[in-house]
Design a protein around this nucleic acid. Structure first.
Ligand code: MN
Ligand code: MN
Length: 260
DNA sequence: GCTTGGC
DNA sequence: GCCAAGCAACGCCTT
DNA sequence: AAGGCG
C-alpha cells in the first residue's frame, strides 16, 4: 500500500518517497513534497490561474529531465487545465495550480521547477507582470547583479512604477513589474527592451544586450526576451535542480542594496 | 513517473 | 505478473 | 530561411 495524502477530499498517491532527488543533500521526494506543503501559502498565489510549465526529474537532479507542458494522460480528473492554441492550431492543455492537492501531486511527479506564464488564463494575451531577467555570465558577481537591479528600480521609480526583486535560485535576479493586463506581449517586451537599453547605456561595463552567449563577455545579460508569449519565468519559491537544493526567493530592496 | 504491450 | 520501452516542449527573435 | 536561446 503506497501512502496516500488526502486533501480537500482528494487523494494523492505518493510513490517512491525515499528516492533521493538532491543526492548530495540527502533530500528525498518526501522532502520535496513536505517543502511544497510548507511553502504553499506563499507559493500558490503565484501559480493561481496561470498556465504552468514544469521541469521534471523523476530520477533526481542528476538523472534525465524533461519539460512538460501538456497534462499527462491519466492524471487525476480534478486537476485544472487550460487549453491554449499554438501555431498551426495545436492545442496544449496546461496544468493550472489552484490548490494544495495539485501542488502535492506535482511534487510526487518530481516536478522541481515551476514555470508559470506571465499572463493569466483569463487574459492569455495580456501579461499581468513584466519581468526584468538579469542573467550574470561567468565573470559577473552577485554584487554587480544587485547594482544593476537598483539601476532598474530607480529608472522605473522615475516612471512611478514599483518593481519587486527575487533571486532566480541560481545566480541571477529577476524583477517583477506588476501590470494591468491591458498590454500585449509584444508591447510589454518592447517596453522592457527600451528600459534595458537605458540600463545598458548607464552600465555598459557590467551589462550586455547580446543574445549570443559567446558574445556576452562574461557580463550580465539583460534578458528582455523573457517577455514573450509562451515563455515563462521560474516561480517564486520554486525549487531549482541544483547542488544545495536552492529555491527562487523574493528579496527586500534592503537585501538587494546590501549586495549580499 | 506511469502506461502500455510483449512474453 | 513482470519488466523494458516509450514518452513527457516550443516558438520567437535575431541575423 | 535557419537556428540560438531560455
Ligand atoms: Mn534568468
Ligand atoms: Mn534568461
Amino acid at each position: 500500500m503506497a501512502p496516500v495524502l488526502s486533501v480537500n477530499d482528494r487523494s494523492v498517491n505518493l510513490t517512491n518517497l525515499t528516492k533521493p532527488i538532491w543526492p548530495d543533500q540527502g533530500y528525498t521526494k518526501q522532502d520535496l513534497i513536505r517543502y511544497y506543503i510548507e511553502v504553499s501559502p506563499f507559493l500558490l498565489p503565484h501559480l493561481q490561474g496561470r498556465p504552468l510549465v514544469v521541469q521534471r526529474f523523476p530520477e533526481g537532479i542528476r538523472g534525465e529531465a524533461f519539460y512538460q507542458k501538456n497534462i499527462p494522460e491519466g492524471s487525476p480528473d480534478w486537476i485544472d487545465t487550460c487549453p491554449v492554441t499554438h501555431e498551426e492550431g495545436k492545442i496544449t492543455r496546461y496544468i493550472i495550480v489552484g490548490n494544495l492537492e495539485t501542488l502535492i501531486w506535482l511534487g510526487n511527479q518530481a516536478c522541481l521547477e515551476l514555470h508559470p506564464w506571465l499572463s493569466s488564463s483569463r487574459t492569455l494575451e495580456q501579461p499581468d507582470f513584466a519581468v526584468f531577467d538579469l542573467d550574470p555570465m561567468e565573470k559577473s558577481t552577485f554584487e554587480q547583479v544587485c547594482r544593476v537591479a537598483l539601476v532598474i528600480r530607480d529608472l522605473l521609480a522615475g516612471l512611478d512604477l514599483r518593481c519587486y526583486p527575487k533571486t532566480s535560485g541560481a545566480t541571477g535576479i529577476q524583477l517583477y513589474l506588476p501590470l494591468t493586463p491591458t498590454y500585449s506581449y509584444r508591447e510589454v517586451r518592447r517596453f522592457v527592451e527600451a528600459i534595458c537599453w537605458q540600463v545598458h547605456e548607464l552600465r555598459p561595463d557590467i551589462t550586455t544586450m547580446e543574445r549570443i552567449v559567446e558574445k556576452r563577455q562574461g557580463k550580465i545579460y539583460l534578458d528582455y526576451l523573457q517577455n514573450v508569449r509562451g515563455k515563462t519565468i521560474v516561480a517564486p519559491y520554486s525549487p531549482r535542480p541544483l547542488h544545495g537544493a536552492p529555491v527562487s526567493m523574493p528579496l527586500s530592496w534592503e537585501e538587494v542594496a546590501g549586495g549580499k
